[in-house]
């Protein structure tokens, strides 16, 4: 597994091909928008019965990243659950799995718009986490700096000489990083969307996830 290293507010960070962010100095692994329990929520609210394996798949990938990194701190950057009901109805097996992952390390749930309250799953619940020189929160704030956020599920389209390739991507500039969504049942928002083009500085880069992360100037759209 490879990563792309860059710095934010003096902190050396590594964007991993899996969509997780690694901060070696603090042994901190950060993931965003897990949307655990999404299939349950869709069945409950909409009646469509999606394959109920999304939580298992997301957790499998997260467990692998945690095991590889041996992180001392894990930060889930909000929208960790598709809603509070989905958090409440996670099967026992998956609750135990989360508990096993939490053992022996600090675990922080940042609140997101999908999961705005505390959940009964161990770890610390915070609206945001300041960890100098960085701040972890769910939705980026204009004017902030040293900020790590998620929420938008960014993806980037790259036109290669043979075809257009579209992948979930980190967006990074000198003020902030926006993480791609880590959950299995998540879609993406193109980096050319006005809200992302407005947020990110003109010299921002997009780091495409995949077997090998690739950094490119962030594709921008009209604001």
């Amino acid at each position: 597994m490879n990563g792309h290293m860059f710095t934010l507010a003096g902190a050396e960070l590594i964007a991993m091909g899996t969509g997780a962010l690694w901060w070696p100095e603090r042994s901190l692994l950060c993931v965003s928008d897990l949307h655990l329990g999404k299939s349950e929520r869709v069945a409950r609210r909409q009646g469509t019965i999606l394959p109920p394996y999304d939580t298992r798949d997301t957790m499998t990938r997260l467990a692998a990243d945690v095991a590889r990194s041996q992180a001392r701190v894990v930060v889930c950057l909000g929208d960790s659950f598709d809603d509070l009901g989905a958090a409440g109805s996670l099967p026992e097996e998956e609750r135990l799995w989360i508990a096993r992952l939490q053992a022996g390390r600090r675990w922080v749930w940042i609140e997101g718009n999908h999961d705005p309250g505390p959940v009964d799953l161990g770890g610390t619940h915070l609206a945001e986490l300041p960890l100098a020189p960085l701040t972890f929160r769910h939705v980026a704030r204009a004017g902030a700096s040293g900020e790590i956020s998620g929420h938008y599920h960014p993806k980037a389209d790259i036109l290669t000489r043979a075809r257009l390739i579209s992948r979930p991507a980190f967006l990074a500039d000198s003020d902030r990083v926006i993480l791609p969504a880590y959950g299995s049942y998540t879609g993406g928002l193109r980096s050319t969307a006005p809200e992302l083009s407005r947020l990110m500085r003109s010299e921002a880069i997009a780091i495409l996830t995949g077997p090998q992360p690739h950094a490119v100037p962030m594709p921008r759209g009209a604001i």
Binding site: G3, M5, I158, T160, R161
Partner: peptide
């Protein structure tokens, strides 16, 4: 294809065409 295009885009943007994919990822 992505690697080729990423190098080309970064070079034309005046950025480092070969971003440091150091084994540093394994350091921690």
């Amino acid at each position: 294809l992505l690697a080729e295009e990423a190098d080309r885009l970064l070079a034309s943007a005046g950025l480092d065409p070969a971003p440091p994919r150091r084994p540093g990822w394994r350091v921690p």
